[in-house]
Design a protein around this nucleic acid. Structure first.
Lengths: 341, 341
DNA sequence: CGTTTTTCCGTAAACGTTTACGAGAACACA
DNA sequence: TGTGTTCTCGTAAACGTTTACGGAAAAACG
């Protein structure tokens, strides 16, 4: 069925070497010959055998995406990733690259699965998600000299790899600004307790904005919890028992926000009425919650495309002019004002 | 870095043929030799080069998962798929297979991307999701003789491929049974208008149960809408304007349920108080909605594993004894009773 | 017209496997 | 001892590419 380079050569009465050169756009082939080759390729609908090419070139022509769900994130993974993957895959496909996905076990954090990809050279590069502040996987990949890019910043590995992140710090600031502008001065912050970098970034922004407004940071209004609904549910009451109760709360995670709002409801505190609520990363959950939650929304599909591009630019085989190499980028979030604040 | 079969051969002073045979567990190799080979392989941490193997065997050792989002499902894809993919990938990995994901453009339904996978033999088989009642992709793959399996049933292609589906019919029945047992007799049904098979299956069950209870099926209580929140929002009021207003409503999709509940709220009809609501496929949205929605929950990760197994059993290279070939399976849903009914 | 350069193409090796084939050694049997 | 069988292994070809090398023909140059 599938025609090979030999079929083309036989059909045109030329050698396979010439066919290959013509197809690959090399200079040392006559213009007319190239034309004939391309035409024949189209007619016999030739497409190169990936295995043959990979074997010869020592590259697999595929990029691995590794998703290691956070511990506690059991049933439905974060909806975050489907649109991100869509963008990522679309851009990779444009460069004839396949996207391979590797799922980790939720929770455990040993990079065994990653090792398999690297040691057996199953992919040419890796895209990591759910990056931690100190991330074993990044250390491992750096040491192994294996190309990779990350969704989310980390403190590991230095500035040596492309990374794309959301501007959590700015979002934290903006959330505070917005609440202060509406008269709030007692503003709580709920974030995940894991070593997730965005939790730190968010808190930096939160603190910075408070200080800018001359509001003292009250440690009693900051709480860390498990990064799921249960975590939000458990930890939110803690900040509400502060003697001078907060009039607003910023959640650093949508799942925690839902659990938190549930807890608030049970305390007789109605989100959107008795307390203002803002969520840092928007999901459909926020939009259809009642009250609809004001939230900061990322543009996931473009982010996927962009990270693919950054990764490609860092690979010698795909790199354009040297100057175009992009190391890190931080994208703003868009505020979607709804009913909860 | 990576050691090849030649390294092993050189290290052991035997031929590469013998090494390969030993590694592949063929009979014509001395037991002691095999032992030495395996040991050396471990010591030099050898792992076979996929490209070489693929080239020789004419198989890619990877399975493609194609996800074509429904039209209108833009921002966040269905959270459904992450846990499903986790199970799928885990099972495939056990058979040394890679999982490749191919995203379609949401909406348009031309199987071009699928064609690419098939014609360039980028994968050994395909797993389809979001199956339609009449599905071009299934027809295409059947005709092309390309192995595949589907998540969800279809009427296309006959009984020739493995498929795994959720028992929407039974869920429809059970939802009605539950509502009737609670005294409801005017029960509305909202389902997607697309040619999605589960919409038909659900309605079959709904009708069957009503008839079993001696309740006449009122076409005015059945409505089709776009498969997203907007669709639910637009279409739900229609059944509420029926002269004998329903006291319960079953949504065939979580997104539509959210939009529908929003519409109900705006009409002054409070879900869980003034009207009972049941959702057929549970998502986190249902759990944290207020009121929490009673819903039927699938076990996604096991389903992923299972479908992988069924697909493998249908592939000659992996098939066990002939009898174990599984064609279709339908899994029950588990009712999660919450506050909305 | 002779020499050098350029253009274009064929040859063949290499990437890492798997496997058909055959051959030597050991063994069984008469 | 001669013959046939069984074990075990080496040899070499093949899968479909890419590419270094060299050579023939054409073009350029003196």
């Amino acid at each position: 069925m599938a025609s090979s380079i030999h079929d083309l050569a036989r059909h045109l009465n030329i050698s396979i070497g010439t066919v290959s050169r013509a197809l690959n756009g090399r200079a040392d082939v006559n213009a007319e010959t190239r034309q004939r080759v391309l035409e024949a390729a189209r007619k016999l609908n030739y497409s190169p055998n990936q295995s043959g090419r990979s074997l010869r070139k020592g590259a697999t022509h595929s990029i691995a995406f590794m998703l290691q769900p956070h511990p506690g994130d059991q049933q439905y993974g974060e909806p975050f990733f489907i649109p991100f993957l869509t963008g990522l895959q679309a851009r990779l496909a444009e460069s004839e690259l396949d996207l391979m996905v590797v799922m980790g076990e939720p929770g455990q954090y040993q990079p065994e699965r990653l090792r398999r990809v690297v040691e057996t050279r199953r992919a040419d590069a890796v895209v990591l998600a759910n990056t931690r502040r100190e991330d074993d996987r990044i250390d491992y990949l750096s040491k192994a000299g294996f190309p990779f890019a990350t969704l989310g910043r980390s403190q590991s590995g230095g500035d040596t790899y492309p990374s794309l992140d959301i501007d959590f710090e700015r979002a934290g600031e903006e959330a505070v600004d917005r609440l202060v502008a509406r008269g709030h001065r007692r503003i709580a912050a709920i974030r995940p307790s894991l070593d997730l970098n965005f939790g730190y970034l968010f808190l930096d922004g939160y603190r910075k904005a408070l200080q800018r407004h001359g509001i003292e940071v009250d440690p009693g209004l900051i709480a860390d919890g498990f990064i799921n609904e249960t975590g939000g549910y458990q930890v939110t009451p803690r900040v509400m028992l502060s003697k001078d109760r907060p009039t607003a709360v910023i959640f650093n995670n949508d799942a925690m926000a839902l659990g938190g709002c549930k807890a608030l409801g049970e305390m007789g505190i109605r989100p959107g009425h008795d307390i203002a609520v803002i969520v840092i990363v928007d999901t459909p959950l926020c939009r259809y919650f009642s009250p609809a939650l004001t939230a900061f929304r990322p543009s996931l599909e473009p982010m996927g495309r962009r990270l693919a591009e950054m990764l490609l630019a860092s690979l010698p085989a795909f790199a354009g002019p040297e100057g175009t190499r992009i190391i890190r980028e931080v994208w703003p979030l868009e505020l979607v004002a709804r009913e909860s604040d």
